[in-house]
Computed example of a mutant assay.
Amino acid sequence: MDALELLLTRQSTPRLTAPAPDASQLKVILDAAIRVPDHGALAPWEFIIATGEGLETLADIFVNAAQASGADEDFIHKAKGMPMRAPMVITVAAKTQVHPKVPVLEQQIAAGCATMAMQQAAFALGLGAVWRTGDFAFDANVNAALGLKAEDQIVGFLYVGTPAVAAPKKPQRDGSQYARYL
């Protein structure tokens, strides 16, 4: 798959199953992540990978956070199953630092770009992936349970695996309708 085909056909794959990426595929995915624009070479990200028992741990983290927030039983039950939607979940955290030339927002955007690059790499490898956020990305209890600092920001949970079904091709859209000239 060439780069333009990837960019123009990439789409989320929400229905995922085993197998997860193997070690060599995961290396490609992670290597793609760190090639994104990174002003000052700060590497303002961390990738927390959950597979197997790690998915159970992530589920427990979600359940505990939901309980701490006073969620109802239906949501707590849903939270327990969230990590099980794929055989691998990569939590991407922006780990920013004070820098005279690189604002925090730019560092967070770089972590977001890393997430997108991982999704694209998975797609190029014939895998599927979907980038999710939701309330748990902004939950202090989830941050703490994942060993993140209060100032760290989860930019997403990247669910990765093998597509369970062939996703229908999305129609091409005209990007120029969102552009204007000065």
Rank of each mutant, 00 (worst) to 15 (best):
M118K: 00
H39N: 10
T51V: 10
I29F: 01
D174M: 08
D174W: 04
I34T: 13
Q172F: 10
M118T: 02
V36I: 14
G40Q: 00
E5H: 06
G126Y: 03
L125S: 13
I76P: 05
D22P: 05
T13P: 04
Q97S: 12
A33C: 05
A33Y: 02
N141R: 13
N141V: 13
V155F: 00
T115H: 03
D31P: 01
T9F: 00
L55R: 14
Q25S: 06
Q11W: 07
H39I: 08
D72Q: 06
K78Q: 12
P37L: 01
A33W: 02
D174H: 08
E53H: 04
A94L: 01
T9N: 13
V63I: 10
L55Y: 08
D74T: 11
V28R: 13
T91A: 12
D31Q: 09
A50Y: 08
P19C: 04
P168C: 09
N143I: 08
R35D: 04
D2C: 05
A164G: 12
V155E: 06
A117I: 04
R180L: 13
A140C: 08
A166P: 07
T51D: 01
K101H: 09
P168M: 11
S12F: 06
P168T: 14
S12H: 09
N64M: 06
A110V: 05
A41M: 11
N141E: 15
A23M: 07
K169R: 12
A144D: 12
W45R: 04
M116W: 11
M118H: 03
A79Q: 03
V92L: 12
M116H: 14
S176F: 11
S12Q: 12
A150F: 03
A86M: 07
R132E: 12
G156P: 10
F123M: 04
A179M: 14
A41C: 10
Q108C: 13
N64Q: 11
R132V: 15
L6I: 12
R35F: 00
E73I: 08
P19W: 04
K169C: 07
P168V: 13
Q172M: 12
V102N: 03
Q11Y: 08
M82W: 00
A3M: 06
A145D: 14
A71F: 03
C113E: 11
H77E: 15
N143G: 10
A124W: 01
A129N: 02
L125R: 09
Y159C: 07
G156Q: 11
F62E: 04
M1G: 14
L42P: 03
P168E: 15
A71H: 08
T57W: 00
W131S: 10
N143W: 00
A122T: 03
Q177G: 13
V102E: 01
N64F: 00
G40H: 04
F136L: 11
F47K: 01
D174V: 07
L16A: 08
V28W: 02
R35G: 06
